[in-house]
Amino acid sequence: MSASDHLIPVVVSNVVEVNPIIKRFEFKHVNGDELPAFSGGAHIVVEMLDDGTKRKNPYSLMSSPFERDQYAISVRRDDTGRGGSKFMHEQVRPGMQMKISAPVNLFALDLRARKHLMIAGGIGITPFIAQMAQADKLGVPFELHYAARSVSQAAYMDSLADRFGDHVSCYCDDQGESVDLETLLSNQPLGTHVYVCGPKGMIERVVQTATSLGWPAAHVHFEHFLAPPVGEPFEVHLAKAGIDITVGAEQSLLEAVEASGTPINCMCRGGACGQCETVVVACDGEIMHNDHWLDEEQRAAKQRIMPCVSRFRGKRLELDL
């Protein structure tokens, strides 16, 4: 059983070029039905049928959780990635039918918060757009600090500033602007929760600054970008199925297992939720653990792997599948 077994048929209702590297895709249910309600920070998995290859990528929902006639996601084009974003940018057109999963939230607002402090970097803005709509409706104070490389890449910056006014502060690297985390995190009322979504370095800086200032860990929330990395092709033996499979360079191990027809649990497909955790029967080589689920000890033991994002290099990998 996995979330992506229960897909919702949708039609692409709109494709908008937000800037040279980001496009927004809007989906409606093929029957015109309402789509499932969700909470800010949730993502969906989009299934892409790309010339015989089935890819499933997670994208944060950016539409308002209170609008159920359509969903919206934004996709940043990554030409060095596995091809999912390239497919979305080049192949997906209005009127096309696709399949998406029901929403899953691994980056929810803590509803106990007296104030939500949101820090976004680049395309990491998308979950916050839905969360701001939610916080606004619930009447809970919030503040967004949004950093982008350049004015031309700062998707939705102007519209968010127009819509939420003083709640939004913007920073563009090419203008020499940056978030002063020390000052920002030193001056928050009790009961504030901080959320960060953006590049790895930014997440680390926010978590470190908050920790050194004495923020309780339970008040610091982050979401890493969810994208399986590319790598060298490798072979895997599936012990229960008794078969050998090859994982392509631009394919995840999870996708290769699915393509072989072997059952496997999964949900987020981004190394965060833990559903696809798989027992390693034998490993002669190195597992590239790219997940956020296993701890250091588990990684070193080489007895578990998260097939959605992790890869292998070496002589033999055998999994309990």
Binding site: M1, A3, H6, P36, F38, S101, A102, P103, V104, M267, C268, C273, G274, Q275
Partner: peptide
């Protein structure tokens, strides 16, 4: 707990 934390909507 692990099962419940990832319980999907609609299932």
């Amino acid at each position: 707990l692990k099962f419940l934390l990832t319980l999907p909507q609609g299932q």
